[in-house]
Nucleic acid binder design. Sequence first.
DNA 1: ATACGGGTTAAAGTGCGCTTTAAGTCAAGG
DNA 2: CCTTGACTTAAAGCGCACTTTAACCCGTAT
Lengths: 145, 145
Amino acid sequence: MSGMSIGQVARRCGLAPSAIRYYERIGLLPRPIRVSRQRRYTAEVIGRVRLVQIAREAGFTIAETRAFIGGFSATTPPAARWRTLAERKLAEIETQMERLRRMRQLLEYGSSCRCLSVDDCARVMGSSDPCPPLRPRGGSGGQSD
Amino acid sequence: MSGMSIGQVARRCGLAPSAIRYYERIGLLPRPIRVSRQRRYTAEVIGRVRLVQIAREAGFTIAETRAFIGGFSATTPPAARWRTLAERKLAEIETQMERLRRMRQLLEYGSSCRCLSVDDCARVMGSSDPCPPLRPRGGSGGQSD
DNA sequence: ATACGGGTTAAAGTGCGCTTTAAGTCAAGG
DNA sequence: CCTTGACTTAAAGCGCACTTTAACCCGTAT
């Protein structure tokens, strides 16, 4: 037992072996030692893969993830490069969270919406306040469409 | 002035004309009338495109966006179909927001982190609490990689 | 008249993040 | 010995959301 095979690592991490190889190719994972041409991993790699997964799930691209991991891999200190990247990404995260909040509002609102059309809803969303709480609307007077 | 050209709509919405055509092809936008083979849009389309943009920016796929818009297009009422979709998506949004929060924590934490390696950080993230507030670590003892 | 700046189409291309395929290597087991 | 099953590689394929390309049409200005 000189370490895990790629298949074992893959199963442990819930990934396909091909994904592990891919991550290796693009530099997200270190090239492991080999025993008769086959990759042999130490337990360490699990943490590494998990880190990649956290980053990917959070919406980091492969390039970002690489910068992220490569940025302070091993014994490298937190580096300014990393800090910059982090700040950029934090801003993006805020933006994305704001978008999600807006969409959530639209969705939640949608369930109780009285707008005659989605387009009306969009207008409402576009303006600052969510659909005017139950605007009085008779069933018959529309003509803008 | 019998309506806007595709180029005008595109410019107003900050999209390429090709995107507008694409949206039309896949059914996100209605086929507009034509004047000598060229598309002519009424102002209405702007709201529609904006709606698409909101949805797309919030992370809806094209298919979702189509269901979303088609779901209560024009004079169609909020429909149960839409409600179901919305609930599914709301759950996804919560998940995604949680991920973003976790990543934000990791990033914010990263700036003040004393872990010797990213992998340590990952372990810490994996456990429930963020890096033990400033674990005592001398500046010179790394060797894990 | 002709050139120009739009518009039109179908089809192919792009970038991302992998997966799939084809062809081959290798250790163990019947 | 030969099969089995997991591994190896490079290269091609896929789904998404568009963009780009190539070849064409068309109204207006010079």
